[in-house]
Simulated scan of single mutants.
Amino acid sequence: MIKNPKIAVFGGGSWATAIVKMLCENLNEVGWYMRNENAIDYIKINEHNPNYLSSAEFDVSKLLLSNDINELVNYADVLIFAIPSAFLKGELDKISENISEKIIFSAIKGIVPESGLIVGEHFHKMYQVPIENIGVITGPCHAEEVAMERLSYLTIACQDRKKARMLSKYISSDYIKTKTSDDIIGTEYAAMLKNIYAIAAGIAHGLGYGDNFQSVIMSNSIREMKRFIKKVHKMKRNINNSAYLGDLLVTGYSVFSRNRMFGNMIGKGYTVKSAMMEMSMVAEGYYAAKSAYLLNEKNGAKTPIIDAVYAVLYQHKNPKQIFKKLTEELD
């Protein structure tokens, strides 16, 4: 493994911004790809992202900024992708460089719609990146709290623990604690599923359900997550670890959760289109709900919460009626 690897982050949103901030604590140079050239020019002058996490200030002398994705793919040994899954293929299609020998880490909480695969599997099957060169960065961690340097915890998963430890070293700081895992598939599915459950919690809140029912939603969600992941990748894992349960709780309860916010708007009567227009950030759980529902049609896990969210978002069923029925299925 390369002794002092060059690292680049791909994405211009809040989570990409937070990851760049973490890396800048430990590295003298960090590559950063974003397609918005105006945002790049702004950062160079004002030392913060104009659109996301504006409180996070950067030493711009450490940043190699570019809107040329191939420039940074060529530059870096380790590529960290933090582009919303719905837009990932469009960005990857721009890449003309060979990435099969790169180390790829996904910080994306979703399934690539065009392939129906989680991001790690997409890179493996579509770009021939070896499984041992693919990793996942997962929470529980909100980008907004990273910007404020509040104590946060991350799990870095990779089948090759040396690579997981390498990235952990470059991301860790006084306010970022990390642990490693070899459950790359389970942690990535958990990161995708928790966004669906956060939408369910938001819908329930928007409909007027209180904290008592929220706790029932969350306790049922972690068991549903366990059943779902066991169907797609059976291995020994503790679903109560922070990469699974912790990430679910912070996404389901936090005021920073865009998926909970999206669900809350749906519960209050917004259409999907109007809720999306009102939000300036992507709610990954919207896209994940369809992918998870379709995948589970083949696998057959018992998933009443995923089914309810899918019915509301994609079958345009009445949220009040669907959640009334859901209350009879939970325990």
Rank of each mutant, 00 (worst) to 15 (best):
S274Y: 05
S66N: 13
A288D: 04
W32V: 09
G210D: 10
A243R: 00
A143Y: 00
I111D: 08
F87L: 09
L151P: 09
K226C: 10
L154E: 00
R165A: 12
G139K: 03
R35Y: 14
K273L: 13
D331K: 11
R150M: 15
G300T: 10
A275G: 05
V255Q: 14
H122F: 15
V232C: 12
L53A: 08
Y270I: 02
K290L: 08
F123A: 07
N98G: 11
T178R: 02
I306D: 06
Y270S: 03
Y153R: 14
L248W: 06
S172G: 05
M279N: 11
N67C: 13
A289Q: 08
M281K: 12
F213S: 12
Y270E: 01
Y270Q: 03
T17D: 07
H316L: 15
L64W: 08
L294P: 00
H124E: 14
M148Q: 13
H124M: 14
L72Q: 09
D247A: 05
S215A: 15
V146T: 11
V255W: 11
I184Q: 04
K236Q: 09
K273Y: 07
I199D: 06
G206R: 03
D59I: 04
K177N: 13
P5Q: 01
D59T: 03
I217W: 04
N38V: 12
V73T: 13
E224Y: 06
A56C: 01
Y52A: 13
E297I: 09
I131P: 09
Y42P: 06
I7M: 04
K102Y: 09
I69R: 00
N259T: 05
I45Y: 11
A204R: 01
I45F: 13
N67S: 15
Y189C: 14
A191K: 04
K236G: 07
M218T: 08
T187L: 07
V78N: 08
L117C: 09
N264R: 12
D59M: 06
I176N: 07
N238A: 02
V119C: 01
A76M: 12
D68W: 07
E284K: 06
N98D: 15
I104L: 06
M265E: 01
V272Q: 06
E145D: 15
V255S: 15
S14F: 07
E149H: 15
R35N: 15
L23C: 11
S242G: 00
V250N: 05
A190M: 05
K317F: 03
K89Y: 07
D174V: 03
G186M: 03
N299E: 15
I199A: 00
A18W: 01
L313Q: 00
T303P: 06
V216K: 13
K102Q: 06
V232A: 11
K324Q: 14
A275Q: 02
T180R: 07
N4A: 11
R258G: 02
N240L: 15
V20F: 09
T271M: 05
K194C: 05
N26Y: 00
A56H: 05
I203M: 00
A311P: 06
V272Y: 05
K268G: 11
T303L: 15
P50W: 02
E37P: 08
I108T: 04
I43E: 02
Q214I: 10
S168H: 01
H142W: 12
S181Q: 01
L326A: 12
T178S: 10
N241Y: 13
E47S: 15
G13H: 04
D211I: 10
Y314K: 04
K290C: 03
P50S: 08
L193Y: 12
H316Y: 14
F262C: 04
L249N: 03
E71R: 14
V146S: 09
A275P: 07
